[in-house]
């Protein structure tokens, strides 16, 4: 579904931000991306999503059989892959409803604003499923940081790309919301979506991911199924000053860290 080969990112001054990287991810799966600050997570995720940024990229990224460089128009690209960061702001008083409508219109590629009845139903269905009806009339800028992240996540789901890239998008969520996000992502995977998620919460990534990659200083030091990657030896390679313990959750059977 996603094949990354020989993908490299350099700053305009020539500094390497991400060394040659290869990845394969099947459809309807979650890839967790983990690493210390500045390890190249955003370079990798922005690169895979084709987001415009002032860096030099090389290598090949193929999504669903189509090379990303053939999707030069953002309108075509967002149907396949959509990138979300973590910090959302607006200088204007746009409501959550406006944002959702804008999301659907963007996915439709139409020139004129406005939703048709089918799109209106689809939006209502997603909003109800995510329990966000009460947020619809709220002005986006007045929401808490966690609410903003949830609303942006919902808007991305409404746009329904094949691959959704979430770069620390859940960094401000409380535990309740974080748990609901894991359920929502599982639901959407069943509907055919694929996710790439970076986070500094390794237990969250372990809970939600099918595969995990550890990045350090711009290169992948470990990658594969969560159980094979999440171990104390790899963590010691990532962080020299801490020695986390890896345990298995008796409830979910997933690996977790204690520190």
């Amino acid at each position: 579904m996603i094949r990354v080969s020989g993908f490299e990112v350099r700053s305009q001054s020539g500094k390497s931000l991400l060394s040659s990287t290869d990845l394969d991810l099947p459809a309807q799966a979650v890839l967790g991306v983990y690493g210390p600050n500045g390890s190249g997570k955003s370079s990798l995720l922005r690169g895979i999503s084709g987001e415009a940024s002032p860096v030099v990229r090389s290598g090949e990224i193929v999504i669903d059989g189509v090379p990303l460089n053939l999707l030069s128009s953002p309108a075509d690209r967002i149907k396949r892959v959509l990138y979300l960061g973590s910090d959302f702001r607006s200088a204007f008083d746009l409501t959550v409803r406006d944002l959702f409508e804008l999301g659907i219109e963007s996915a439709s590629g139409r020139f004129w604003p406005g939703l048709n009845p089918g799109e209106r139903d689809r939006m209502a269905g997603v909003v109800e499923r995510l329990q966000m009806v009460s947020l619809l009339p709220r002005v986006f800028q007045t929401l808490s940081d966690g609410e903003k992240q949830m609303v942006m996540f919902a808007r991305a789901l409404i746009q329904a790309p094949k691959v959704l890239v979430l770069d620390e998008t859940f960094s401000k969520l409380d535990l309740d919301r974080l748990i609901s996000v894991t359920r929502i992502i599982r639901d959407w995977i069943n509907c055919g979506m694929t996710f790439l998620i970076s986070s500094h919460d390794l237990n969250f990534l372990s809970e939600i991911s099918d595969q995990l990659v550890f990045l350090k200083e711009g290169r992948i030091i470990a990658g594969g199924p969560v159980d094979s990657v999440l171990n104390e030896s790899n963590l010691r390679e990532l962080f020299t000053k801490v020695a986390p313990h890896v345990v298995t959750s008796p409830e979910s059977g997933k690996r977790k860290i204690l520190y």
């Binding site: 953002p74 309108a75 690209r77 967002i78 959509l82 979300l84 960061g85 963007s106 590629g109």
Partner: peptide, 9 residues
């Protein structure tokens, strides 16, 4: 930063 995620160049 968000413009391209709405499909706009």
């Amino acid at each position: 930063e968000m413009v391209e995620s709405f499909g706009v160049s």
